[in-house]
Design a protein around this nucleic acid. Structure first.
Length: 424
RNA sequence: GUGGGUGUAGCUCAGUUGGUUAGAGCACCAGGUUGUGGCCCUGGGGGUCGAGGGUUCGAAUCCCUUCACUCACCCCA
């Protein structure tokens, strides 16, 4: 036992879990390349102000959840709590929109939020997200959501629900917010303390409240869909039409309110089973105004982020990584050790050259033949390569295939090419 | 930040109203006649019972404190 432990909410991803992560990442990358997205990798550390201005200084994420370091090169910096701000910063900084009308990029990596951990919620967690930057056409919204649903269906994610909403734009949202606030004030005594407090700070967030008495009040509350201006209403109607045409089922939920201030118009959320209370596996929306907040020119954009730990959680054991063939080289006595090691190394090189990739394991300690086979069998090896006194006399290795009873004597000099062919 | 639950072997967990050297399953190691795996059998190694303090002749068990993990609130992917 070490006196040290990993920090709260920042668990190790252990070797035994890695195959599932690799399989998931492999599928994501393959899928996204088909859809025309290329990866972008931004630093995990950025100026604190980038996040504060983008996400919104009064959001919980910025107010109390960022890991902030005092100062690096004269400015406070923070570990990224999400990916969109960095991607758009990079887009503007490097003029990535130059010469094309739509930039399509994805990111995949760790994010950091200082929250109390629970099921599906960690302090260091991983997100994969896409951003489509440069167009406000409603069919881009459609394509992004269809991509998301198809990706999740590709993974055979159980129990999927897509919910969409429009949160309005800078013209109609303030007006709606005032109407809602007036309504909530009129019903203040029926609301829980939390919601009374939120009435002023962020009235739209009360829709997230789970207190039953609040819920019954909210059933009567004005909803934003009745207060959208023509531009937002038309946009939403086109998105809905597009989704229906694409055959993606969804429900319109006026209560979807994202926790990041930069969203406007389209907002959406996908939930899945097995996730406990944190049941959103992915969410996103349109952020047409964000580029200007960062000091760039008007640049409409939309994207989503998906929680990878949550995806793994919903998939459970149904995500099975393809397993590599495995071979174990085992000396049966100390006189065979060096020769066994040399042959395992030559075999590895032969496999590298022939572009086959089995795992070739060499065990330095001599084992009894029984122990060697039992171990190889337990490790799901397809073959054990055994060298003992008899083999050393004949200059051959015993190749024991473990799926049946097959066993072959192969001359030392033929072994690497024999194995690299058999394992291909 | 606020609640609830749980901390005993590498893992999953038993441990009866406080009572001898703290147990099981899985895993690991070694055997079950000379160099052949999976099943089975036998044996073995491995634990400051989360930590600290207290009550008691005696504490894994009762009390206090503390830490960790976990679920939920909150918030969100």
């Amino acid at each position: 036992m070490s006196k040290y432990k990993s920090l709260k909410g920042m668990p190790d991803i252990l070797p035994a879990d890695i195959p599932r992560w690799h399989e998931m990442e492999k599928r994501i990358r393959r899928f996204l390349s088909i859809y025309g997205y290329t990866e972008i990798r931004t630093p995990i550390l950025e100026e604190t102000e980038l996040f504060a201005r983008s996400i919104g200084s009064s959001t919980d994420i910025v107010e109390k959840e960022m890991f902030t370091l005092p100062e690096v090169s004269g400015k406070p910096v923070s570990l990224r709590p999400e990916g969109t701000a960095s991607v758009l910063r990079s887009y503007l900084e490097h003029h990535l929109g130059h010469g094309q009308d739509l930039l399509k990029v994805y990111y995949l990596g760790p994010m950091f939020r200082h929250e109390r951990p629970q099921k599906g919620r960690l302090r260091q967690f991983h997100q994969m997200g896409i951003e489509a930057i440069g167009s406000d056409h409603p069919f881009v919204d459609v394509e992004v959501m269809v991509l998301l649903m198809n990706l999740l269906e590709f993974f055979q994610t159980p129990d999927l629900h897509l919910e969409i909403n429009s949160v309005g734009d800078e013209e109609c949202r303030p007006a709606y917010r005032k109407i809602l606030k007036d309504f909530l004030k009129a019903h203040a005594q029926e609301l829980c303390e939390n919601c009374q407090r939120r009435t002023d700070s962020n009235p739209m967030r009360v829709f997230d409240c789970k207190v039953p008495s609040c819920q019954s009040v909210l059933e009567q509350a004005p909803i934003i869909l009745d207060h959208l201006n023509a531009r937002c209403a038309d946009h939403l109607a086109s998105v809905e039409e597009g989704l229906r045409t694409a055959g993606v089922s969804f429900t319109k939920n006026p209560r979807i309110v994202r926790g990041l201030d930069y969203y406007e118009r389209t907002a959406f959320e996908v939930t899945s089973g097995n996730l406990g209370a944190q049941n959103a596996v992915a969410a996103g929306g349109r952020y047409d105004g964000l580029a200007e907040v960062m000091g760039g020119s008007h640049t409409p954009a939309i994207g989503f982020a998906m929680g990878l730990e949550r995806l793994l959680l919903t998939l459970g054991d149904s995500l099975i990584p393809s397993l590599q063939k495995r071979v174990e080289f085992v000396p049966l006595d100390d006189k065979a050790q060096i020769q066994t090691m040399a042959l395992s190394m030559q075999t590895r090189q032969a496999c590298v050259r022939s572009d086959t990739s089995p795992t070739i394991e060499f065990l330095p300690e001599p084992k009894s033949i029984k122990a060697a086979l039992r171990r190889a069998n337990r490790n799901q090896a397809v073959a054990a390569i055994l060298l003992g006194s008899e083999e050393m006399k004949k200059n051959t290795a015993t190749v024991k295939w473990l799926n049946g009873k097959d066993q072959k004597e192969i001359r030392f000099e033929d072994l690497p090419s024999y194995l690299s062919k058999e394992l291909a």
